[in-house]
Write a protein that binds this DNA or RNA. Structure first.
Length: 273
DNA sequence: TTCCAGGACCGGG
DNA sequence: CCCGGTCATGGA
């Protein structure tokens, strides 16, 4: 592994960032592990290799990009205090312990919005496959042959037939109209980030193919609004089985979205259904 | 074959 | 407000 590495930059103690959990917990779809357990991905138009070595997490970024990646990986946020609140029901405590080391990535807004539009009524392997094709077809080729996520302007200029190779079915027009809304300025990410949650929610649901769940995911993963609590089929099942009737996730407070991620990850990977 | 996947939308009760 | 059908697609 060391032979080809041009750079080795320390990012964080391994106890603060579990790469496998963070990249495989369902919040993102573009980070892939190679044969030597190095994760490779892209954000802000930059390719990154990141890996664990002993008690540390390292990457190959130049030191001048350190703050970009620490921000993307949300390393400036304390997760121990909010996680310590997730004590009941007992199931939630179990989920929080199981998911320790997950960080909610600060993904780029357009990528998050587009990705979760694609995610609807779809399984994770196929979501990854569709997004991978989208990036290879219309993204920019970076180092290591990795492609960037195509920006909204690029997508907005496409036709529905140009999205046909994605095989994403009825979601294709949703992708196009969302891209056009972003380009025209009728959807403004900065404005959404500054709005009260209810207003941002209403604004997002005006988009075709964006309902409560996709809007919540975008708020959490694209705007890093940690109080957002997306409920999909897995969360429904987990809430139904392990939480009181009419349970209100708002009692989890401003980090409810983190609890949601712990639950989703545990329910999907470590629970029998 | 039917069911399901990080749903949304529309119609009718 | 909730309910059922419908919308592509592919894997189990």
């Amino acid at each position: 592994m060391d032979k080809e590495i041009k750079n080795k930059l320390f990012l964080a103690p391994a106890a603060q960032l579990d790469l496998v959990k963070t990249f495989e917990c369902g919040q993102c779809f573009r980070w892939e592990q190679d044969e030597s357990s190095v994760y490779k991905g892209v954000a802000h138009g930059k390719a990154l290799s990141i890996w664990r070595d002993g008690e540390g997490i390292f990457c190959d970024a130049p030191e001048s990009d350190l703050s970009i990646w620490r921000n993307y990986l949300d390393l400036e946020t304390d997760y121990d205090c909010p996680a310590a609140v997730f004590t009941e029901p007992e199931y939630l405590k179990t989920c929080a312990e199981y998911g320790k080391g997950i960080r909610i990535l600060r993904q780029e807004p357009w990528e998050a919005l587009c990705s979760f539009i694609i995610s609807q009524c779809n399984n994770i392997p196929r979501i990854k496959q569709i997004i991978g094709t989208l990036c290879r077809l219309y993204g920019e080729k970076l180092d290591d042959g990795i492609y960037s996520f195509p920006d909204a302007r690029t997508i907005a200029a496409l036709s529905e037939s140009e999205l046909a190779p994605l095989r994403c079915g009825y979601r294709a027009p949703y992708i196009l109209s969302a891209a056009r809304a972003v380009c025209e300025g009728s959807l403004d990410f900065d404005a959404l980030a500054a709005m009260p949650a209810d207003d941002a929610f209403t604004e997002l649901k005006r988009l075709q193919g964006v309902g409560s769940k996709v809007a919540s995911c975008f708020m959490l993963y694209g705007l890093h609004r940690m109080d957002s609590f997306p409920i999909d089929t897995w969360m429904k099942k987990a809430l139904d089985r392990h939480f009181p009737k009419d349970y209100d996730p708002a009692v989890l407070g401003s980090f409810a979205g983190l609890a949601q991620q712990y639950i989703f990850f545990y329910a999907r990977t470590n629970e029998e259904w």
